[in-house]
């Protein structure tokens, strides 16, 4: 309740702040630097490496936008934000965009006055149990003790799911993912529930990951994506079409390896339009013609970004699942570049 009121104030203040400043695109170009809000640390999505360089799935989105707008993927200032500070940081203009595994929900889009520019990761809440529990479906979890992070949507989803299936559970409230891992390993709870990407990342860190299984049920929709302030459509278009270009790049087979080759001109008109060989699209967006080429060249297309940060060759080892291209049974789909 308190949070809602607080965020409401934040949102209305954001309108004033938004009205006062010029277009974000011009601001970013003038500053020569993109201020991008990321998490303070989430496996696979954003974390600083030992040299202090941010790495991760969300981080690569920031870099792609910076490459498109400023011509240099390194010109990003990463602003670590927490679950509480992320929306005010965006609303107050402390950051230009948020790429902080944020779930697209009605109230965030409508009430908090943000514009979600797309979905770059389809997540959902799942369950992890020790193998020795002998459970193969979430429907068999009646009476289980469940480690659950307090104050999150996962807590509500869990209650709904168990109620709908007429089962009982005993919650073990915990504050952070780190605490959850310790409690779960120590056997304080039978089940750990959070987003499936988080479960996979957590399981990968265990000394004996094979002793634990992630159950097949997905009990909620958690579409994650980058977002910007509402009311600045030009900037929203830039971020949206950079995201789309990454997906479309994978769809058309444009990779960081062959992009130079393809940008010399191909007989596929859509590739030519994206890469600026057929000029026009960059100007419409307020950028130069090479914008999408640079965005894809920065970290590769969507598939490459996924594989480098979350995919099966990384310790997190997530399969594409819902995040495969639409042509391969997934949901990743870009509107045409036409």
């Amino acid at each position: 309740m308190k949070t809602t009121v607080f965020l409401g104030i934040a949102a209305s203040a954001c309108l004033m702040a938004g009205a006062a400043s010029a277009g974000t695109l011009d601001d970013v170009k003038q500053a020569g630097e993109l201020k991008c809000g990321v998490t303070t640390g989430l496996a696979g999505f954003a974390a600083p490496d030992s040299n202090g360089v941010w790495q991760g799935f969300d981080v690569d989105y920031c870099r792609a936008v910076a490459a498109a707008v400023l011509g240099d993927p390194t010109k990003v200032k990463f602003v670590p934000t927490t679950g509480q500070t992320r929306f005010t940081a965006l609303a107050s203009g402390e950051v230009d965009m948020l790429a902080r595994n944020t779930t697209w929900t009605f109230s965030r889009d409508v009430d908090l006055k943000f514009t979600f520019v797309g979905i770059n990761y389809y997540d959902g809440q799942g369950f992890m149990v020790p193998k020795k529990l002998g459970v193969s479906s979430a429907k068999e979890l009646d009476g289980a003790t469940v480690c659950i992070q307090t104050g999150t949507t996962t807590e509500l989803n869990l209650a709904d799911y168990f109620k709908a299936n007429n089962m009982k559970y005993e919650p073990v409230p915990i504050e952070t993912n780190a605490e959850a891992q310790q409690q779960f390993l120590a056997g304080a709870c039978d089940v750990y529930t959070t987003d499936r990407s988080g479960l996979a990342a957590t399981r990968a860190t265990f000394a004996k990951p094979d002793d634990y299984v992630v159950l097949p049920e997905v009990i909620s929709k958690e579409p994650l994506g980058p977002l910007v302030r509402q009311g600045d459509d030009q900037w929203a278009d830039v971020v949206r079409w950079v995201s789309n270009a990454l997906v479309e790049g994978e769809d058309l087979g444009i990779t960081s390896a062959n992009i130079e080759e393809l940008s010399k001109g191909t007989n596929n008109p859509e590739i030519n339009r994206i890469l600026g060989t057929d000029p026009g699209f960059g100007k419409m967006l307020g950028l130069d013609e090479q914008w999408a080429k640079r965005a894809i060249a920065a970290n590769g297309n969507y598939g490459e970004i996924f594989a480098a940060n979350l995919g099966e060759s990384t310790p997190i080892g997530l399969s594409r699942g819902l995040n495969a291209l639409w042509t391969q049974g997934g949901l990743q789909y870009s509107p045409p570049f036409r």
Binding site: T40, P48, D49, P80, T81, A178, Q181, P315
Partner: peptide, 20 residues
């Protein structure tokens, strides 16, 4: 969102090398 030592613990734990 300031990265003091505790903040860095979270950030370090989030890298694929040191997660866990």
């Amino acid at each position: 969102g300031l990265l003091d030592p505790i903040g860095f613990i979270n950030a370090i734990r989030a890298t694929s090398e040191w997660n866990g």
